[in-house]
Design a protein around this nucleic acid. Structure first.
Lengths: 254, 254
DNA sequence: ACGTGCCCTTGACTTTCGTCAGGCAAAAAG
DNA sequence: CTTTTTGCCTGACGAAAGTCAAGGGCACGT
């Protein structure tokens, strides 16, 4: 279902009659929501009022698991921001198997590429965990972008930083062995620098395996092997006995 | 050595006293050069005069093999366009081994990310085949970018397309077995849809191996295996006996 | 209570990749 | 002309990932 509050009011104003807190299942509203959105690489460093102009014809969506957002080939007249839940982008291989390209968790965005290129979505997008999304319409976004040079500049810089991340992931996939990718993934989930840490996996192991580029059976084996290094898993929660030592092993091995 | 023509004149004007044809070992000059530069995703769809403003304080470089363009950590006050030759971007792993992140061949650009992010280069850049480059200075580029909204918009779209390419490469590395990545790399080098095709490798096999994410020994074995599928290699040239059939095998296997 | 589907794990087996080592040919350097 | 370097191939071996198959634990609905 579509959120009753069709037009987003990121920053409530006196003349705004839209009720706040209507985003289904989502905690932040108003300024809090804006703050979350600003953490996106695309929007980093932009002013509130610019953000409002960019998202002038955006709508909020509450979607249930298995909803199809769009499929490959459909026209890209918007892009999406994930506030809650999870959305999976996948491609269908020629023989009909599905290959998960990416999973988006809060707070992230996807589809800008297709929208700005004025083309169609190249992938399927499916909600895999009941989600709250913002659907950012093309018109206002592009209009704002064209009217203010600084906006484009900031967004460009943000995209560039994101590119570095992608490039480094490519580097990882090529040079780092799977067990280490798993270990580093786990380490990236915690802020603690030494001693023990407990992290909870942001998604199930099927998808985690896909993220690091191995089969789920292999992931099981890797996790079994990591047990010898003081990493114990139980359901969604993972306990790392000695963060520093694991970090060191990763650095040393490679 | 630095090109004697320090300031680029993409489109020669009456008052421009710089001699044309001074770019070492490079064929195109003036309008031809501009045409080449415009093929970059970053510049796609921009006008000539905008291009000139963007590149106002750019210089041409002729560099020999093994020249170090920049190393990780040095301030990013420019980016580079490869007109001729090859430049390798690499990282040094903790144990001192080198890992090649990317190789840039004509016509491509690199370093925009670091420059626009106002930070430092994260990688080493080394010329691996005598090269002709354009060094695009930060000042004029950013100034133009900030003054003209359309420029930023176009560049953003270009970056987004590039982003799709990176994302798809990540997908490949995760889901496609090495021999198939090699096969698809070869197939991507030719336009022919059926029958025989002869392609020449754009770089040596050490680097090709690095591109597809395997060791050079493995590449040798893969190429040996591909021989059974009608792919014969001899030095830099590769002959594919039946393009269509190889394509089909790639599609079927996965 | 029972069946069903989902998620995860494990074992046995196959395939492949990485590593170490050796060797060959052509080009470059002495 | 000899030596060195460079690029490439190949064999042997071990480690590791993929594949196939089976089974356990758990939540769910009936």
């Amino acid at each position: 279902m579509t959120c009753p509050c069709r037009v987003l009011c990121l920053v409530p104003k006196p003349e705004c009659s839209k009720a706040q807190g209507q985003l289904p299942r989502h905690r932040a509203t108003g300024p809090g929501l804006a703050k979350q959105v600003m953490t996106l690489p695309l929007f980093s460093g932009l002013d509130h009022h610019v953000l409002e102009r960019l998202m002038a014809d955006s709508t909020a969506l509450g979607l249930e698991r298995r909803s199809l957002l769009f499929s490959a080939g459909s026209p890209a007249d918007c892009f999406y921001i994930v506030l809650d839940g999870q959305v999976k982008l996948s491609a269908l291989t020629p023989d009909g198997r599905e290959s998960i390209v990416e999973v988006f968790t809060p707070v992230s965005s996807f589809g800008e590429a297709a929208m700005l290129s004025n083309s169609v979505f190249p992938l399927h997008a499916e909600v895999i965990e009941d989600a709250t999304l913002i659907r950012v319409g093309r018109r206002a976004f592009v209009a704002t972008l064209k009217s203010d040079p600084i906006v484009g500049y900031r967004m460009l810089a943000g995209m560039c930083r994101w590119h570095q991340r992608l490039a480094s992931e490519i580097h990882h996939l090529k040079q780092i062995p799977p067990w280490q990718r798993v270990a580093e993934f786990l380490l990236a989930l915690t802020d603690t620098q030494a001693g023990q840490a407990v992290v909870s996996l942001p998604f199930n192991k099927e998808i985690l395996a896909s993220r690091v580029g191995i089969r789920r059976e292999s992931l099981s084996r890797v996790l079994a092997r990591l047990r010898d290094m003081g990493v114990s898993t139980e359901g969604n929660s993972v306990r790392i006995d000695d963060v520093a030592s694991l970090r060191q092993r990763c650095a040393a091995a490679q």
